[in-house]
């Protein structure tokens, strides 16, 4: 039982960041009809940006995390303007190929820039775990899960309560009518991609210090983000949050009770099963962002 609780807590930490990845991707996928294979690279970028700021720049850790999120947003906006905006009327296959290209290019650029050796990101938290009854949790992990929750809350506020968020949802539901209301669809696309990228970078900045930063860390992150999106249903914000947490917990339990070698298979199996048997996602009935 104690072990179970411990897995649950670890799963929650992981799940919070998966949710961040998933929310970003579900917005991009849902609003722009874009299969963003480069999503994981923004995650990698977030981790390396934090590393650069802390280890090389000597910045304060918290400032570095915030800076990484900004870097993610800017990089996302740039990608959208340069690569995607000219292809807005192209088919989903075309833009998917571009994103695959971007993925490979960014990953290898990171490999060239930082080398293949994994970097550990210094952080100011003590290593001794906090104990709550039978469960031990490192202070860093507490910070990660709280920050993730805060960011999820902020995203929700942005989407639900702001003028931009309403316009994003309106565009998602009926692009042409949104245009009739005076929404500039191009700007909504850029904002959405930048926002989703910022969340991915945030996930990288948060998980990077727990694990390590290495160039191919984004591959699995992308796939996990996709499983979260598929689990939660396309464009479903609450679904992505729940899906992320579920995936995190399922992975921890799978690794703990089945085999740690198959930890990463959980996401794959989810993608296959959900798409085959419930393609609209597990939470299709709950309210969609769109």
């Amino acid at each position: 039982m104690d072990a179970f609780l411990q897995h649950l807590v670890n799963g929650l930490v992981l799940g919070g960041t998966y949710a961040l990845l998933g929310i970003g991707l579900t917005l991009i996928f849902g609003l722009m009809n874009l299969v963003n294979f480069a999503h994981g690279e923004l995650y990698t970028l977030g981790a390396y940006a934090t590393f650069a700021a802390v280890a090389l720049g000597g910045w304060n850790f918290f400032v570095a995390v915030a800076a990484a999120i900004v870097v993610g947003a800017v990089a996302g906006a740039l990608c959208e303007r340069v690569l995607l905006a000219p292809l807005r009327d192209e088919s989903i296959d075309t833009t998917m190929l571009v994103m695959i290209g971007l993925w490979i290019a960014l990953q290898n650029a990171e490999l060239l820039g930082w080398g293949g050796v994994a970097k550990s990101i210094p952080h100011p938290f003590p290593t001794a775990p906090l104990t709550l009854g039978p469960v031990g949790i490192a202070p860093l992990r507490v910070f990660v899960v709280l920050t993730a929750l805060a960011l999820i809350g902020l995203s929700w506020l942005l989407i639900q309560k702001t003028r931009l968020g309403t316009a994003m949802r309106a565009t998602f539901q009926d692009r042409e009518t949104a245009a009739l209301m005076g929404v500039k669809i191009g700007r909504i696309h850029t904002a959405t991609f930048a926002f989703g990228s910022a969340l991915a970078a945030a996930a990288g900045a948060l998980l990077g210090p727990i694990f390590l930063a290495y160039p191919s860390m984004g591959d699995l992150a992308s796939l996990k983000a996709f499983s979260v999106v598929i689990l939660g249903g396309l464009g479903n914000l609450a679904g992505a949050t729940l899906g992320g947490v579920l995936l995190g917990i399922a992975e921890e339990l799978g690794a703990g009770y089945v085999s740690s070698g198959y930890r990463d298979a959980v996401g794959f199996v989810i993608i296959i099963l959900v798409l085959l048997f419930r393609p609209s996602g597990l939470f299709a009935r709950s309210q969609r962002i769109g």
């Binding site: 309403t166 949802r169 309106a170 539901q173 009926d174 042409e176 009518t177 949104a178 009739l180 309210q287 969609r288 962002i289 769109g290």
Partner: peptide, 10 residues
């Protein structure tokens, strides 16, 4: 517009 086109989930 034709067909009302309200945003259904808003």
């Amino acid at each position: 517009p034709e067909g009302r086109r309200v945003f259904p989930h808003l």
